[in-house]
């Protein structure tokens, strides 16, 4: 089957995915004085900025708001960065696309993996903040790997489609950048679900990013199990997009080298 072949190739080239993701991660801060420390420093500083804006200026009336917001923000950064970088993976692949032969899905996969690792590396900071704020993560933290797995599959599936679209229509990236901003505010990251009028909540559940955000918040912040039904449906949905994405990718990949 096409999907299994597609993923099988990816698996056979996992060493390359790892090597390129490592290049991305290590290369990002190479040459800077603080080096790899930036991987931790960046989310930390971001957290402080958001905490300043929403706790000091906007004075959001919610206990442990900074930690709450951070629980949703970190996965969102993974998701949005993954989409942005992933959609340009083929176009930015340069000589790796035009001059070397290997399964091209490696390139978008690398962007998802490297951003996911970045996400994982920022989790200790979240943990430190939780503890500093007097919060103890509950047992529900065990749901995290399941949520993260679905999240990665969903992100990769989207990226597969987007990176193909970007090859043929360079506008995709610019449109995507704006859409992501809109999507961010439509997703309960900065606000809890309870802020959404009851009438419109069903709409929130139609937003995959919202389901992820809520799941992370449940597991890490509220200390309750995520909505498995929503997550399960989303997992199925992700697989469907993945199958579609793989088909689109496989169909168009022969034109990549010519189009770039």
């Amino acid at each position: 089957m096409l999907l299994t072949r597609h993923l099988g190739e990816l698996w056979r080239y996992r060493a390359l995915v790892a090597a390129l993701a490592g290049r991305d991660l290590k290369g990002r801060y190479r040459g800077s004085v603080l080096g790899f420390l930036w991987t931790f420093l960046n989310p930390l500083l971001l957290l402080l900025v958001y905490a300043l804006v929403f706790s000091v200026y906007f004075r959001v009336q919610m206990e442990h708001y900074a930690v709450f917001m951070f629980t949703g923000l970190l996965p969102w950064i993974f998701f949005s960065q993954g989409l942005m970088e992933g959609s340009g993976a083929i176009v930015d692949g340069g000589s790796l696309v035009t001059k070397v032969l290997f399964p091209q899905q490696v390139l978008p996969a690398v962007k998802v993996v490297s951003n996911f690792i970045n996400f994982l590396l920022s989790l200790p900071i979240l943990l430190v903040f939780m503890l500093a704020d007097g919060l103890r993560p509950g047992l529900t933290i065990l749901a995290f790997p399941a949520v993260a797995l679905v999240h990665v599959v969903f992100t990769f599936a989207c990226v597969l489609v987007l990176c193909v679209a970007t090859v043929f229509m360079r506008d995709t990236r610019h449109i995507l950048g704006n859409l992501i901003t809109l999507w961010f505010f439509l997703t309960p990251v900065l606000y809890p679900l309870t802020q959404v009028p009851e009438r419109w909540r069903w709409l929130v559940y139609l937003n995959p990013a919202a389901v992820f955000s809520l799941s992370y918040q449940d597991a890490l912040f509220w200390g309750r199990w995520p909505r498995w039904d929503h997550l399960g449906l989303l997992a199925l949905f992700s697989l469907v997009i993945l199958a579609v994405g793989a088909r689109i990718f496989e169909h168009y990949k022969e034109y990549f080298a010519e189009k770039i």
């Binding site: 290049r23 290369g27 190479r30 790796l96 001059k99 032969l101």
Partner: peptide
């Protein structure tokens, strides 16, 4: 097995 010397150093990262 094919090796192509079409592009040397494809994927070199300048900072590495």
């Amino acid at each position: 097995r094919v090796s192509s010397l079409i592009e040397l150093g494809a994927g070199f990262h300048p900072e590495f």
